[in-house]
């Protein structure tokens, strides 16, 4: 991989390149299906943390979870442009997976800190989990749950508080309270706060 290329123009392509590079460097399993789901989760996590998506790629509800034609096209474009290629590799079940891997080094990727952080998080959390678990989790996310098959996923409705508020015609605060009350663990903490002991986060989880 001696050749160096300037990063592609589109943000979606740059994110794909970053993900493929990071997975390859950390020797994490990757396939076109996994790439799709990891990108979907990155979008979801970023929206949840920062209130906005990373790219504007559309995802639809499909048999094996969220699918994006834009991601598939971008990946194809990156292969044609010589950024990545697909390496055939036999899976544990005897199928042949086509594993995306970097073909050249890339400069000036220009991704925001928040995007890099979320990509790192997604890889750390899901990079070694099985594809079945990844698909199962992606299918249990709110945008997927609320879409019919073939319908586009609405990331705006990933906001659970807002979705419940709209569905029940209550305020967002009432919906958030309802969610908290349906969590025994969270409620227990809130209930016992006055009798609790407190520690700095770093000390508690060191």
């Amino acid at each position: 991989m001696g050749q160096v290329k300037t990063a592609p123009d589109s943000r979606l392509e740059r994110v794909i390149v970053a993900l493929v590079y990071a997975a390859w460097q950390r020797e994490l399993p990757l396939s076109q299906t996994r790439l799709m789901k990891l990108l979907y989760l990155a979008e979801l996590y970023h929206k949840e943390l920062y209130g906005r998506r990373i790219t504007n790629a559309d995802f639809v509800s499909w048999t094996y979870g969220p699918y994006s034609h834009a991601v598939a096209l971008a990946e194809e474009g990156l292969r044609e442009a010589g950024f990545i290629d697909l390496e055939p590799r036999e899976t544990a079940r005897g199928y042949t997976a086509r594993v995306p891997r970097p073909k050249v080094a890339v400069r000036n990727l220009q991704l925001q800190d928040s995007v890099r952080e979320v990509l790192a998080l997604v890889l750390e959390e899901w990079g070694t989990k099985t594809t079945d678990k990844l698909v199962e989790f992606a299918k249990a996310t709110v945008p997927f749950l609320i879409a019919e098959k073939g319908e586009p996923l609405d990331f705006e409705r990933a906001d659970v508080f807002q979705a419940i508020a709209e569905a029940r015609r209550i305020s967002r605060s009432e919906a958030a309270t309802l969610v908290a009350e349906h969590s025994e663990g969270a409620l227990e903490g809130a209930r016992k706060a006055c009798r609790s002991t407190f520690r700095p986060w770093e000390e508690a989880f060191s």
Binding site: H182, G185, L187
Partner: peptide, 20 residues
Amino acid sequence: VVFLGFGKHDLAYGRDWQFR
């Protein structure tokens, strides 16, 4: 920021809310 509680809720899995 005082972190008080954390846990899983069952609203979305239970799907007892109408999405549509």
